[in-house]
């Protein structure tokens, strides 16, 4: 049930892919008239056109939730397949790995993306304490916190596969916040908490700029 939006998006995008693959236009061969006879004459066969290979490497800057800000290196072994690995920073340093399909080489292209991200323990726990409105007396009960997530996204990319593209994606994700426990004395009661986990099934969104070189 939870995968329904992604599946629907993929199904809707599929016919466009088929059209893009089958509707390769044939170059029309113009008839040229010679000045002497006025009769049409076949021109010399055109030199075979050398297709520029697609660039395979790119640099990507993305912002999103829960990604934060990500600067990643992109490798594209096939024009429709992109693999990326990047350094991320939000509340703490982390990394994001992505697998992305851009099936159409056109100015506008659908995107299907899968992603895994991990943020190391940094300032996350302090922010969680503040955002969750936890009284200062209880702060010792919350130790270091790291988080990771998996997400599936669909979206659109605008731009050239051979140069700069801008992409907007949305989807669903499963995030897991892993919090270390702690010990504190509150109201003369000594409280010891074990490690605990906060998980969320949540919407995710991502905005990215990619430049192939």
């Amino acid at each position: 049930m939870r995968l329904l939006p992604v599946l629907l998006a993929a199904l809707i995008a599929a016919p466009s892919l088929a059209v893009a693959q089958t509707a390769t236009p044939q170059a029309a061969t113009p008839q040229v008239a010679t000045p002497e006879t006025g009769a049409p004459q076949d021109p010399a066969p055109p030199a075979p056109r050398r297709e520029e290979p697609y660039p395979q490497f790119g640099l990507q800057l993305a912002i999103g939730a829960p990604d934060g800000a990500v600067l990643s290196f992109t490798y594209s072994p096939l024009y429709w397949l992109l693999l990326d690995a990047g350094f991320a920073y939000t509340l703490a340093p982390g990394f994001v790995l992505g697998l992305e399909f851009r099936p159409i080489d056109f100015f506008i292209s659908p995107i299907i993306r899968g992603e895994y991200g991990y943020y190391f323990a940094g300032n996350t726990a302090n922010q969680v304490k503040k955002w969750a409105g936890i009284p200062e007396a209880q702060w010792p009960l919350i130790g270091d916190a790291s988080y990771n997530w998996f997400s599936g996204l669909v979206g659109v990319a605008l731009g050239s596969r051979r140069g700069f593209t801008f992409a907007l994606e949305g989807g669903i994700g499963a995030l897991s916040l892993n919090v270390k426990g702690g010990t504190g004395t509150i109201n003369n009661v000594v409280v010891t908490t074990g490690d605990y986990k906060v998980t969320s099934f949540m919407p995710v969104a991502r905005l990215s700029f990619l430049y192939f070189f």
């Binding site: 939006p5 659109v156 010891t192 908490t193 074990g194 605990y196 906060v198 969320s200 919407p203």
Partner: peptide, 26 residues
């Protein structure tokens, strides 16, 4: 296709959730 996830997010507030599990607090 691009809008579907956004639509799903808006109508899916009952499907999205957050769960905290503290196995031991003494």
């Amino acid at each position: 296709a691009a809008l579907l996830p956004v639509i799903a997010s808006i109508v899916g507030c009952n499907a999205f959730n957050i769960e905290a599990d503290q196995p031991m607090a003494c």
